[in-house]
Design a protein around this nucleic acid. Structure first.
Length: 460
RNA sequence: GCUUCAGUAGCUCAGUUGGUUAGAGCACCUGACUGUUAAUCAGGGGGUCCUAGGUUCAAGCCCUAGCUGGAGCGCCA
């Protein structure tokens, strides 16, 4: 049975027809003769105005309806005589699915995002979170559409991983042992008796497995949950987040940058085209420069430069930094922000970092000092993408692993791709929530994922 | 983990130099209004001033510790 959404009723349905709408009450107001109910079903940021004439419906029957109640309303859809909406629904029958009393936490006015975070189970019912999660959905869909339309294969890499040396941060252990009853051999927990017969963890990246796929399927991407057990307590980090990782055979760093820029612009454009109402709401409510900023990103090339060139710019500026600028150390947030927000005033792609501050799998440049790494830096977000051309040469890769203490025996399967038909290839990781942050203009990453996981918190 | 700011009604906040019975708006209840747009207007009920300890004749306000939350930093996506 087809059930018209409020989005459909507001924008497309023919006036002067009998329709039924279902949704949750945002407000009810009125006088002795008539009540106006703003009804929302999540299909759009806009509400359907239901008009209740007490000549047709007994006032006593709807007296208990307040913000938060869920209703089924049948009536005549008419052109609205008042400003504010194209059509409205003149109710002839109201069925109450569920009332909400005055303890319902989502009120008509003034909630802080911090309060709503503590009410994550109900915050979907606010305009803000409705908008944010519709945009999040649209972006997730657009990611699959982009790669599908460009001939990529969606590869499902494992969430539980046997390797604990992926080089991307602290990991959560996966075990079926009870904390105080793990079998111990020679004073050490014996994971050979555990579920998988070995030590296992939640993945911190699908990249290494993605490379295996790319070395046969050509163009692949992953899009899935990722876990980091870092004590990161910031508005840009989560312990559980979603990451998109394309990996492409025969791509070099230049191709990788082109892909990253084209991909990000496609996603921003998709949101502007498909989430207009929600973005306009966020633009009005939180950040009046949001839409302008999104359009600016579409209209301008990302600034590309090497790490070494960036260091020179930072050393030459009169701008005072808290931390010293020094070749061979990673840039501080304040340095990245200066480059993106002040010096260039646009997204920046930094490349060719010193090898010692980057991961083992990045391809060594001919200078022997830098690697083919790239970071895409966005205003207000910082690093939104991290990627590289991968080291495809077996001997160089093993040498880097040895130098950095990465166990070659454990990653034998990874090294096999370099032994058998190796090829140049490149890829990157895009933090999905950081993308959603940028597109929605939200400022805390905990507000763009339905149920955020972060240190000391796994509520809901 | 480090630095810093905050915690007062269900929610958003005010509360002066430490001084009588802690205030407002929204929400809720009652009433007014025949078309409202987070409606408006009048009235009413509603408080563990985060917790514990301390200073003082007197603490929402000052001090100490803890708890919770925000922002910034590091790690990164």
């Amino acid at each position: 049975m087809s059930r018209p959404s409020i989005l459909h009723l507001l924008n497309q349905a023919e006036p002067n027809t009998i329709v039924t709408a279902r949704g949750w009450v945002r407000t009810r107001r009125g006088n002795k003769a008539v009540s106006f109910i703003a009804l929302n079903d999540g299909s759009t940021i806009h509400n359907l105005q239901v008009v209740v004439d007490y000549a047709k419906i007994n006032e006593e029957d709807i007296k208990a309806i307040g913000t938060g109640a869920c209703l089924k309303v049948t009536g005549l859809l008419v052109e609205s005589p008042a400003a504010g909406q194209r059509v409205e629904l003149q109710a002839t029958e109201i069925e109450i699915y569920g009332l909400a009393d005055e303890t319902f936490p989502m009120q008509k006015k003034g909630h802080t995002l911090e309060f709503l975070r503590e009410q994550a189970h109900l915050r979907f019912r606010t305009n803000t979170f409705g908008a944010v999660f519709r945009v999040r959905h649209a972006l997730a869909f657009a990611i699959h559409k982009y790669y599908n339309d460009n001939g990529y294969i969606y590869l499902h890499t494992p969430i539980i991983t046997g390797s604990d040396a992926e080089g991307a941060g602290a990991m959560f252990r996966v075990t079926t042992f009870e904390p105080n009853a793990a079998p111990v051999t020679d004073g050490v927990v014996d994971f050979s008796q555990d579920f998988f017969g070995r030590s296992t963890h939640l993945t911190v990246s699908g990249q290494l497995e993605g490379e295996l796929g790319a070395m046969a399927l050509g163009k692949v991407y992953t899009f899935g949950p990722t876990f980091r057990a870092e004590q990161s307590n910031t508005s840009r980090h989560l312990a559980e987040f979603w990451m998109i990782e394309p990996e492409v055979a025969f791509n070099d760093l230049e191709d990788n940058m082109n892909l990253a820029e084209d991909f990000l612009k496609y996603l921003v454009n998709y949101a502007l085209e498909h989430c207009k109402d929600d973005l306009e709401f966020l633009n009005k409510q939180y950040d009046t420069t949001l839409i302008e900023r999104l359009q600016f990103v579409l209209a301008n090339d990302f600034q590309r430069l090497t790490y070494t060139e960036a260091i020179e710019i930072l050393k030459a500026t009169k701008h005072k930094f808290e931390f010293a600028v020094d070749w061979s150390t990673d840039l501080q947030s304040e340095h990245e922000r200066y480059l993106v927000e002040q010096h260039f005033g646009r997204p920046v792609i930094l490349t060719d970092y010193p090898k010692d501050i980057k991961a083992f799998y990045m391809r060594l440049n001919d200078d022997g000092k830098t690697v083919r790494a790239m970071d895409v830096l966005f205003p207000g977000i910082g690093e939104i993408i991290g990627g590289s051309q991968r080291e495809e040469r077996y001997d160089q890769l093993v040498a880097r692993m040895d130098a950095m203490g990465v166990p070659t025996d454990e990653l034998w399967w990874y090294l096999d791709t370099r032994k058998f038909g190796t090829a140049p290839h490149a890829g990157f990781g895009l933090g999905f929530e950081r993308l959603v942050l940028f597109v929605t203009g939200m400022t805390n990453i905990r507000d763009v994922i339905p149920f955020p996981r972060f240190p000391q918190n796994a509520s809901f």
